[in-house]
Nucleic acid binder design. Structure first.
Lengths: 204, 204
DNA sequence: GTCTATATCTAGATAGAC
DNA sequence: GTCTATCTAGATATAGAC
């Protein structure tokens, strides 16, 4: 029998990460103090540094956790029968995350931090690459199935599909009163018009 | 005769802003110290605070200056004969700015700062609104001229045109080796396919 | 594992001479 | 208008008791 319970340790670690994510979303990385995190998590400074070696380690933990979730989504999508429908669903799901409070702000914060911290930039880059790979697979299958314009190069197009999700985040950050369902509809229209075959085989 | 030369004062102020912009792009707002700015501008702390009341005032000055430039661009575009061509040109120009070193980073920094500073957020919001207004005018004229799908609502579409520029910025930040001309071409394709009339009058 | 207390450092802004 | 010198506050991370 061990004196430490790994599950309990993981749960507490997660609770700290969640509390910290709220702080970082509200105030950004630098202006969030470790005292803020401790207050939000209901622990002391000593405890915080027992679980994490530094403030930055708490920040990066948010995004390693998130990467796993997105990977699951893409795996599920890869198994779908209709690759184009699966792609549109994944985009809607990811873009829909901005409805959660704090998500937009922490994504903006991550982008800014990645611009000046090489190690964190690599993490963000890996996450983005995984997303693009997953989207490219769906686009490739959609081309093969004749569902989309064969002229679109899957890898490059995947970058722009990801970019459109970022565009939604950007819009949301600039317009707090954004009508999310309406914007989702436009996003879907842009994607469909971008990807659909230019001259359908049946001539129309 | 006055002892101060307003032109000289403005020039020095501008030099400080330019030097500071480089610092902010490299390290972000919080991690840039006033000492960094002084070193970059070749002045002392005392001088810096003679020209600006605070570090934040230096930061905001960057974006009030930029707003004027974009307004000029939109004014020129409004006078063009072909509103759709003018729109595509403006987008290409704005998206092309990311080729300048530091532009991507300072835009990301601005987005992050706007998320946590209400006063600065209002400035960013005003700039974005002016851009969207200008784009919406061009889109409205393009609809009237039968150049684009009358089903696209100018104001909402303008938001997505601006969003696509942000998408380019996002892509550039994630992929430093981005092939800018190639991406510009895809951006143009997405816009044209999004906007073009669904069923051309001449039936094809 | 959790706490209190604090060492140590750094940064924004100011004072006041020239 | 520009400088040097410095005040003051607040932050990360650690020490060490329980």
């Amino acid at each position: 029998m061990r004196t430490v319970d790994p599950a309990k340790h993981a749960a507490k670690r997660r609770a700290i990460v969640d509390a910290a994510a709220g702080c970082f979303a509200e105030k950004g990385f630098e202006r969030t103090t470790t005292a803020d995190i401790c207050r939000a998590a209901g622990i002391s400074s000593g405890s915080l540094f027992h679980y994490f070696p530094s403030k930055r380690a708490v920040f990066t933990a948010i995004f390693t956790d998130d990467a796993a979730e997105t990977a699951e989504r893409l795996e599920a999508a890869a198994k779908a029968d209709d690759p184009l429908a699966a792609l549109l669903d994944v985009v809607a799901e990811l873009a829909g995350q901005i409805a959660q409070p704090g998500v937009v702000r922490i994504v903006l914060e991550a982008a800014a931090q990645a611009a000046r911290d090489d190690e964190f930039a690599q993490l963000v880059h890996r996450n983005d690459s995984a997303l693009r790979d997953g989207l490219a697979v769906l686009l490739g299958r959609a081309v093969d199935a004749g569902l989309i314009d064969p002229g679109v190069e899957p890898r490059a197009a995947a970058g722009w599909v990801a970019g459109l999700i970022d565009a939604m985040i950007s819009r949301a950050s600039l317009d707090p009163g954004l009508d999310l369902p309406a914007e989702q509809a436009i996003l879907r229209t842009i994607l469909i018009r971008f990807l659909r075959p230019v001259s359908p085989p049946s001539g129309g």
